[in-house]
């Protein structure tokens, strides 16, 4: 969605246009949900947080500053809501210790062995992500899942670009290692033809 269209939709939504608000939701809910699902590993929690994030944003559209992108604002609120949820259920132990000990994908802040977690555990990638620290997981999700450039991630998280790159590199290493430790990893991994494209262009960071 280009800026002009986005602005037009925002102004219509501020004026009370229900259809414009619906268009916003349709345009962004997939990426927000994917982000929250990757972060939490729990579909129901991702739904709840995504819903609350949209409601808050659409209820306060009149405060939106048109100098920024709507998606950035939306993800900022979604991130805060997720961190609040994590904080609320944070256990007294380190999640990385737990994940190393159990070998299970668990949400930072405590695992719940319910149906949704079992389904997610089947997803190798999600399993590997849950072994990362929150910062590493978030940066990897923003970079690989949402295709955000380094500069935008840096602004979004309030981190220097060098730190973002460092977390990205270490997160990737850890993710590979975590996946390699999975027993059936080698069988499940698709072998695709070699390609040598790198992420250099995005690593340089193109401001949004």
């Amino acid at each position: 969605m280009d800026r002009h269209t986005e602005r037009d939709l925002i102004e219509r939504a501020i004026a009370g246009d229900r259809a414009a608000a619906g268009e916003f939701i349709q345009a962004h809910q997939a990426s927000v949900y994917a982000y929250l699902l990757r972060m939490s590993g729990r579909p129901h929690l991702a739904e709840d947080i995504a819903q609350e994030a949209f409601v808050r944003v659409l209820s306060n559209l009149d405060r939106f500053d048109f100098r920024y992108r709507f998606s950035t604002w939306l993800f900022t609120i979604a991130r805060r809501l997720y961190l609040n949820a994590v904080q609320k259920h944070k256990p007294a132990f380190d999640s990385e210790v737990v994940s190393r000990a159990t070998g299970d994908a668990c949400m930072a802040g405590g695992a719940v062995d319910d149906d949704e977690s079992r389904q997610t555990r089947r997803d190798l990638l999600q399993q590997g992500l849950m072994r990362l620290s929150t910062e590493q997981r978030e940066i990897i999700v923003l970079f690989h899942q949402l295709d955000w450039p380094i500069a935008l991630i840096s602004r979004h998280l309030g981190m220097p670009e060098g730190t973002v790159k460092s977390h990205l590199h270490r997160g990737r290493q850890k993710l590979r290692k975590a996946l390699a430790e999975t027993p059936d990893y080698a069988e499940r991994l698709d072998l695709v033809s070699l390609g040598l494209e790198t992420h250099t262009a995005r690593d340089e960071g193109v401001p949004d």
Binding site: A21, G22, A34, Q51, L124, Q145, D190
Partner: peptide
């Protein structure tokens, strides 16, 4: 390959009605 897995479609529920109701 791992990065490619990130771009596999994720089944997203349609939250539009719930969100609009909340708003």
């Amino acid at each position: 390959r791992l990065a490619g897995r990130f771009h596999e479609p994720i089944s997203t529920p349609d939250l539009t009605d719930r969100i609009l109701h909340g708003v």
